[in-house]
Amino acid sequence: MYVVIEGLDFSYMPKEPVLNDVSFSMEEGEIVAILGSSGSGKSTLLRLLSGLEIPSQGHIEINERTLCSATSFVECEDRSVGMVFQDYALFPHMSVEKNIAFGLKKVHKSLRPKRITEMLELVNMTEKRHSYPHELSGGQQQRIALARALAPSPSILLLDEPFSNLDADLKLKIRQELRAIMKLTNMTAIFVTHDYDDAKDIADRIVYLEQGHIVHEEQMNPERK
């Protein structure tokens, strides 16, 4: 198994658990949707995976690397986890190019422009290389956020409500694109959503989260792979 999550507990306040004994695992290249209403703890699960929060108990392992256990904890910046935020969080003081380059710390300077070009081609945004985030539409911003998260080749991609800021027409189109990009790069991805249609269109599997518990899992049509 590529991703193993076992017995994850988390609470902000004592005695008000947000997540309670969450366990599941994923294969490499699999896309999983975490589906739940607001307050179900789905965003918190992403924050635990990315290392922005520390679980009170549990074990997280990705690609045979233990990120969190009873005795160890890898900080967010050392996890190599890509994340697309709900409202994208593109750095407003940097151009598109700089935003993508920001994650390429470990890539040699001379190789960065090429990688940026690759990423922009992947999301079909080459002409916006020198634009600033506020000059882009919501859909464009989302693609740049995706490119930025993918650029450092993370071991897993986490997406937090990726469609919540898009209107309905755009949403349909981008869903398809997103799945295509993910499959093209063979990226393992988890995204959280409250919309069953989103989950059904993109994910290979849907995990239902309710009040901090996994209540159900649903495998999508396998032939789509």
Partner: peptide, 11 residues
Amino acid sequence: KFTEASYSLGH
């Protein structure tokens, strides 16, 4: 969110 995005990008 910007700060968290930066952490997630390895900074």
